[in-house]
Simulated assay, not measured.
Amino acid sequence: MANLRFYTHSALTVGASVQLSESAAAHATRALRLNVGDDAILFNGDGFNYSCTLTEIKKSSVTAIVKSVTAVHNESPLNITLVQAISSGDRMDFTIQKAVELGVKNIQPISSKRSVVKLSGERAEKRTEHWQNIAFSACEQSGRAYVPRVLAPTSLEQWLSHHPAVNNTRILLNPIGAVRLTDIAKPTGEIQLLIGAEGGLSQEEIDLASAHHFQSIVLGPRILRTETAALTAIAAMQLAWGDF
Score class of each variant (00 low, 15 high):
M1A: 06
A2W: 01
L12G: 05
T13W: 00
V18C: 00
E22T: 15
E22S: 15
A25P: 06
H27A: 07
A31G: 00
A31W: 00
N35Y: 00
V36H: 00
A40S: 05
L42F: 14
G47H: 04
F48L: 00
F48T: 01
Y50M: 04
L54P: 05
L54I: 15
L54Y: 13
E56M: 13
E56H: 15
K58W: 02
S61N: 15
A71S: 14
E75W: 05
S76C: 09
T81L: 06
T81I: 08
I86M: 01
S87C: 07
S87T: 13
D90Q: 12
D93C: 04
E101P: 10
L102W: 11
I107A: 03
I107H: 02
P109Q: 04
S111Y: 01
S115V: 03
S115K: 01
S120C: 10
S120M: 11
R123A: 14
R123W: 09
K126H: 14
E129C: 07
F136W: 14
F136E: 08
S137H: 14
S142E: 08
Y146I: 13
L156Y: 07
P164T: 07
A165E: 14
N168G: 09
R170E: 12
I171T: 13
N174S: 13
N174A: 07
P175A: 14
K186L: 06
T188V: 11
I191G: 05
L194E: 05
A197F: 00
E198I: 03
G199D: 07
Q203W: 02
A209F: 10
S210F: 06
A211C: 11
F214W: 09
I223P: 09
R225C: 10
A230V: 05
L231I: 12
Q238W: 12
